[in-house]
């Protein structure tokens, strides 16, 4: 069911660099505002939270509302002082958590 998120960040960086991270999670982001053919409201189903941490320390968190477009895209920065692993998570309204990791070498 859960589709694979797309990540874009450099594989290498210099100590102290501020890098740019781009993520995209395929998801319908059903707003809860739309109605189906019979006029019934389609229940809300969105990714309500996105988190990014580096070596276990929080870097960036976003609380998302239905006003975020389908396939939520997030771009943000991170300052890297050491090699390590970024971990990203996306939390669905239904409680599902999708996570992804990416390593970076810092010299």
């Amino acid at each position: 069911m859960a589709e694979k998120p797309r990540l874009k960040l450099p594989k290498e960086a210099k100590k102290g660099d501020v890098i740019e991270i781009k993520t995209l999670m395929p998801h319908i982001m059903e707003s809860g505002q739309r109605k189906d053919k019979d006029g019934k409201t389609i229940p809300r189903k969105i990714i309500n939270k996105f988190t990014a941490e580096f070596n276990g320390k929080p870097v960036f968190t976003a609380n998302l509302e239905p006003a975020i477009a389908a396939n939520p895209y997030m771009q943000f920065s991170a300052k890297v002082e050491e090699s390590g692993t970024f971990k990203f998570t996306w939390t669905d309204d239904d409680g599902t958590v999708i996570s992804a990791e990416e390593k970076i070498t810092v010299s």
């Binding site: 960036f60 968190t61 609380n63 006003a67 991170a78």
Partner: peptide, 11 residues
């Protein structure tokens, strides 16, 4: 719309 939480690690 959204609330972003940042830390010094955000750079």
């Amino acid at each position: 719309v959204a609330t972003f939480h940042l830390t010094p690690l955000s750079g």
